[in-house]
């Protein structure tokens, strides 16, 4: 009699055979799973910044034209960067404050480079919701603490760009930077 199904002959080793077969199916499915998961990596990674964007992640700023009391706005990672040349009065005002009384306790020394206390370099991005604070441009209001003032929700920063009043939780971010010479700073 012809049949379609050849039944497994029960006997020695049949149990082992079944187990080996299950193992192969499991291995095949696992391999497919690992493969599919690996394919996800490039699909996710492609959304990270591309090489040309990263290449612009470091800029050099020439400080020679910024006079005492002035500030410039430049662009770092497609965001505003404030470079401010503090006056002696502004430095004194910042130093006068007791850091422990601040929402985000930091001294001006901690926010500048040793021996270059007059150069305050911060991101121009309010730590509340990301607006650009006023105060870097000539004639812009600097808020009641003489630093920066964010018009969106009224955060006021002092002359060390520390948050003093308003909803912002943190001081303006100080990016990583280093002086290449007395007048050139590399940011990023």
């Amino acid at each position: 009699m012809a049949t379609l199904e050849t039944t497994e002959t029960p006997g020695e080793g049949a149990g082992d055979g079944v187990r080996r077969r299950d193992f192969i199916n499991l291995a095949a499915v696992s391999f497919a799973g690992v493969g599919a998961a690996t394919v996800l990596l490039p699909l996710i990674n492609q959304m990270n910044p591309s090489a040309d964007v990263l290449a612009l992640a470091s800029i050099e700023v020439d400080l020679s034209a910024i006079k005492e009391g002035q500030a410039i706005k430049t662009i770092f990672r497609k965001q505003p960067l404030f470079v401010r040349h503090l006056t002696a009065a502004e430095i004194a005002a910042a130093d006068k404050v007791d850091p422990s009384s601040l929402r985000d306790p930091q001294t001006l020394e901690q926010r500048t480079v040793d021996g270059k206390k007059q150069w305050l370099i911060t991101m121009g991005v309010c730590t509340h919701l990301g607006c650009v604070p006023l105060g870097a441009g000539e004639g812009e209001i600097k808020g009641e603490f003489g630093g920066y003032f964010c018009p969106c929700h009224g955060s006021s920063y002092d002359t060390a760009a520390r948050i003093r009043k308003g909803p912002a939780p943190k001081n303006l971010e100080v990016p990583k930077y280093a002086f290449k010479s007395d007048t050139v700073v590399q940011v990023g």
Partner: peptide
Amino acid sequence: EHIMRDVNSGWML
């Protein structure tokens, strides 16, 4: 070409 050169895994995609 930007995809081919600069985007992460862009050439493969």
